[in-house]
Design a protein around this nucleic acid. Sequence first.
DNA 1: TTGATAGTTAAGCATGTACTTAAGTATCAC
DNA 2: GTGATACTTAAGTACATGCTTAACTATCAA
Lengths: 117, 117
Amino acid sequence: MLNYQAPLDLVFQALADPARRAMVERLSRSPASVSELARPFDMSLPAVMQHLDVLEASGLVRSEKVGRVRTCRVDDANLKLAGDWISKRRALWEQRFDRLADYLAEQKPKSKRRRKS
Amino acid sequence: MLNYQAPLDLVFQALADPARRAMVERLSRSPASVSELARPFDMSLPAVMQHLDVLEASGLVRSEKVGRVRTCRVDDANLKLAGDWISKRRALWEQRFDRLADYLAEQKPKSKRRRKS
DNA sequence: TTGATAGTTAAGCATGTACTTAAGTATCAC
DNA sequence: GTGATACTTAAGTACATGCTTAACTATCAA
C-alpha cells in the first residue's frame, strides 16, 4: 500500500487543473474525440493527452478507440464520490452550527440580553 | 492574471491530499488548535503547518491566534463552491442521459424491437 | 501506394509539492 | 527571570507535474 493513491486523491487532483475541469465540462455535455477536446486549448496534443491520462486514471473519464478516433466520455461514478465527500463534510459542519444555535437559543432567554424590537 | 490561481484550482488542489482532507474532516466536527490537528499524523509540525497554509490559501479553513494558540475552523463557503461545481456537471451529465432516454423512447415504438413481457 | 488524419511515445526541462531538520520567536506558569 | 509550550521561519532535498518538441504508428481516402 506504499504507492497506493486513494480514489479521492486522484479525483480531486484531476479536478485541480482548469484545463482538465474544462474538459470534464465539455464532456458532461456530450462525448468527444481527442482532437475535439483539444481544439479550445492553446496547448500541444501530447499535453492534452496527458491531461486525459490523468482524467482516466482518476476514473472521471472513460474512452474507447474505434478506427483511429478515440471517443471520450464522462464517467459519473467518481464525480459522485467527490460530491458525496464534500456533502458529508458540509452536513457535519452545518449540524455543528445547528447545535450551537440550539445552545444559544437555550441560553439567551435566561440571560439579560435585550429582546428584538 | 499570469500568476493567478482560480479559487476552484486551490480548493480541489487542497482536497487532493489525504492529510488535508483528514484535517478538514476533523475541523468540520469542531475547531481545533494546530497541535490538536497535528496529533493524529506521523509528520513534523512544520509539515502540518504547510498543509494548513494550503488549506487557508484555498479558503477552506480560517484561523486566528489568541495568545500562543492558533485556532482553526472550517469555512464553508469554498467547500460549497466545489460542491456546486460538481453538482452542475453531474446535473448536465444526467440531463444528457435523460435526453438520450427520451430519444430512445421515441425511436423504440417505431422500430421492430420486441415488446417487454 | 501515397498522402493526410488522428493519435501515441519518448525525452527533456522548469516549477511545484511534500516533506525534513535546525533554529528561531512569542506566550504562559511559576 | 526561567523553563516549558505552541507555534513559526528558513533551508534543503526528493519526487511529481505540466508542459514542450521530435519522431513514430496506425487508419482512412483516393
